[in-house]
Design a protein around this nucleic acid. Sequence first.
DNA 1: CTTTTGTCTAGACACTGTTTAGATTGCGTG
DNA 2: CACGCAATCTAAACAGTGTCTAGACAAAAG
Lengths: 204, 204
Amino acid sequence: MTKTKRDSYHHGDLRSALISAAEEIIAAEGVEGFTLRKAARKAGVSPGAPTHHFGSMAGLLTQVARRSYEALGKQLAGAAEGLEGNAALRALTAVYVRFARDYTGRFRLMGRTDLIELEDDDLRAAVYRAMRPLAAAAAGTRGLGVPTPEFERLDPRLIAAIAPAHGLAHLATEGRLAATMRSGEVDAQAQDALVDEVLRALWP
Amino acid sequence: MTKTKRDSYHHGDLRSALISAAEEIIAAEGVEGFTLRKAARKAGVSPGAPTHHFGSMAGLLTQVARRSYEALGKQLAGAAEGLEGNAALRALTAVYVRFARDYTGRFRLMGRTDLIELEDDDLRAAVYRAMRPLAAAAAGTRGLGVPTPEFERLDPRLIAAIAPAHGLAHLATEGRLAATMRSGEVDAQAQDALVDEVLRALWP
DNA sequence: CTTTTGTCTAGACACTGTTTAGATTGCGTG
DNA sequence: CACGCAATCTAAACAGTGTCTAGACAAAAG
């Protein structure tokens, strides 16, 4: 589809072309449908080419994961505006779950510790930045400082805010939140309603 | 190690030998270290043999996942005894997290929808049975019926009990619950303490 | 214009899961 | 007991995979 054409021996911007190709494959076929060679073919390049830019498949997927965390962070930041306390926590969690449902491929990749380089500094920073709105909400609600970037020694109350979101998101992607229609598709509205009920039980 | 010896052409009990082999590999090298051929070699059998018993790799791993859910269910059932209300929920969640930490390979497999056959009836039943203690605790706490076996149209209050456990477990396996020592190993005691704090914030 | 540096290809390697056809065995039945 | 059937397993191949090593090519630097 987005097969980047080649007129010259050199590609020009292969690095970002491969990232885009990977994102498209993951969006269309999921993480399990992704192969490095597919991405190379989509970019119109030989199987060995990606190695020069990313070192390994995990290197490429780490970039995709980083960008995905940035996207999630943006959505979270937007959702928290103008809200405070438990209302903010509910809104943030709802967005977290919607992200997992709407971008299941990306979300699954973010949890695949075998496919990405967790120790990558840029990735860690992106994860930290993405979680900031949740941290802020937890702090606003319960009097708690923003966590250190190392993401270690986290405050239990922040974890208490992240865990339900993470858990709900996983349940959603596994189709365990009811809301599956007869067509097999996910009934987004019904799912949102269910999530809202859960959230009102957790953060009244 | 546990290489099952062969004296005759037929194995005798290849089916369960393959399941055991798979469990050992997953325990030792994680899901990402598992290959079907490895399991076959460990059972002292040709690469094509497993297909006759399980149809595909997913068939074998589905059995491993089923047994893992049974193990988890046993631990949950044991943890709930003699406890009521939020104390039961806290104990159950703590066990859930400990299971994920102590049997990370198994736990990761349970979440890999691409490696197992989610629609398998035995698996679904095992999942349902494993979650019963959580459902009972949520019911005892908040006046809620035990969910239907189809695991659809779940009560939001039950989901509110499962989600934090699931989320905490994932965070634990990703090493995001502090509690990682300088050696790189997980400080189980510190992690348990942190989880306990989180749980007291969620279910006071 | 030449050299150096960064990109990319070609081909191979050691794997993977699965399929095919055939060899081997145990078991129920005559 | 002997026979044939059905179950079980093997051997070999197939189409893939990620990654490595040479070397080909092109653009930038001297």
